[in-house]
Simulated scan of single mutants.
Amino acid sequence: MAKVDIKMPDEFLERMSRLGKDFDTVAESVLKAGGEVVLQKVQSNLSAVVGSGTKYESRSTGELETALGLTPAKTDKDGNHNVKVGFAEPRSDGGSNEKLANILEYGKHGQPAKPFLKPAKSASRSACKAAMQQKFEEEVRKL
């Protein structure tokens, strides 16, 4: 699965730490809001590259695009809250969606790279932070 780390400003993280017992619920909703922004950008980039620029007619089934999704917010062993944008496994034919995504992203012999993850990361960084900050302000007002 591709990994994207988007670091939040220190002042924002400090405000989050003041929430006390409500931190986990607020963090989960804030991360989900940011993850949705990144997911939409990855989906649009993936749709643009699948089947484009090929010598032969595309054999795309659409299964890779439908397998793309967002995980629920979870806490890792270090206490960090995370959401992941990735592909559900396995494919109906027994293959790997992550393998196909990797081939699309980086190419292979005889198939040029068609990056969709790295451009999505770059393009959605500021929008993701803005969505997360807006959701944070909204959640704090509720408390």
Results as ranks from 00 to 15, higher is better:
Met1Thr: 09
Met1Val: 06
Met1Trp: 06
Met1Phe: 06
Ala2Glu: 11
Lys3Asn: 04
Lys3Glu: 13
Val4Cys: 00
Asp5Trp: 05
Asp5Ile: 10
Ile6Ser: 00
Lys7Asp: 07
Lys7Val: 08
Pro9Glu: 00
Asp10Ile: 09
Glu11Asn: 12
Glu11Met: 07
Phe12Val: 08
Leu13Lys: 14
Leu13His: 01
Leu13Ser: 13
Arg18Cys: 00
Leu19His: 04
Gly20Cys: 05
Gly20Glu: 08
Gly20Val: 06
Lys21Leu: 04
Asp22Val: 04
Phe23Ala: 10
Asp24Pro: 00
Ala27Trp: 02
Glu28Pro: 01
Ser29Gly: 01
Val30Trp: 02
Lys32Asn: 06
Ala33Trp: 03
Ala33Arg: 02
Ala33Glu: 06
Gly34Thr: 03
Gly34Phe: 02
Gly35Gln: 01
Glu36Ala: 09
Glu36Leu: 08
Val37Trp: 10
Gln40Ala: 11
Lys41Gly: 07
Lys41Asp: 14
Val42His: 01
Ser44Met: 05
Asn45Ser: 03
Leu46Tyr: 05
Ser47Glu: 14
Val50His: 00
Val50Gly: 00
Gly51Phe: 08
Gly51Lys: 07
Ser52Trp: 00
Gly53Leu: 11
Thr54Ser: 12
Lys55Trp: 02
Ser58Arg: 09
Ser58Trp: 12
Ser58Thr: 15
Arg59Ser: 12
Ser60Ala: 15
Ser60Met: 05
Thr61Trp: 11
Thr61Pro: 07
Gly62Asp: 08
Gly62Phe: 06
Ala67Met: 06
Gly69Ile: 13
Gly69Lys: 11
Gly69Ala: 12
Thr71Met: 05
Thr75Phe: 09
Asp76Met: 03
Lys77Ala: 15
Gly79Arg: 12
Asn80Ala: 13
His81Trp: 13
Val83Ile: 07
Lys84Glu: 10
Val85Asn: 01
Phe87Glu: 03
Phe87Arg: 03
Pro90Val: 05
Ser92Asn: 13
Ser92Ile: 11
Ser92Thr: 14
Gly94Ala: 05
Gly95Ala: 11
Asn97Phe: 13
Asn97Cys: 14
Lys99Met: 15
Leu100Asn: 12
Ile103Met: 14
Leu104Ser: 05
Glu105Ile: 06
Tyr106Thr: 09
Gly110Asn: 12
Gly110Tyr: 09
Ala113His: 08
Lys114Val: 08
Pro115Arg: 11
Leu117Arg: 00
Leu117Ser: 00
Lys121Trp: 11
Arg125Ile: 07
Arg125Pro: 01
Arg125Thr: 14
Ser126Arg: 15
Ser126Tyr: 07
Ser126Asn: 15
Ala127Glu: 15
Ala127Phe: 06
Cys128Leu: 14
Lys129Pro: 03
Ala131Lys: 08
Gln134Ser: 12
Glu138Thr: 11
Glu139Gly: 05
Glu139Cys: 07
Glu139Ser: 12
Glu139Met: 13
Val140Trp: 09
Lys142Cys: 12
Lys142Ser: 15
Leu143Lys: 14
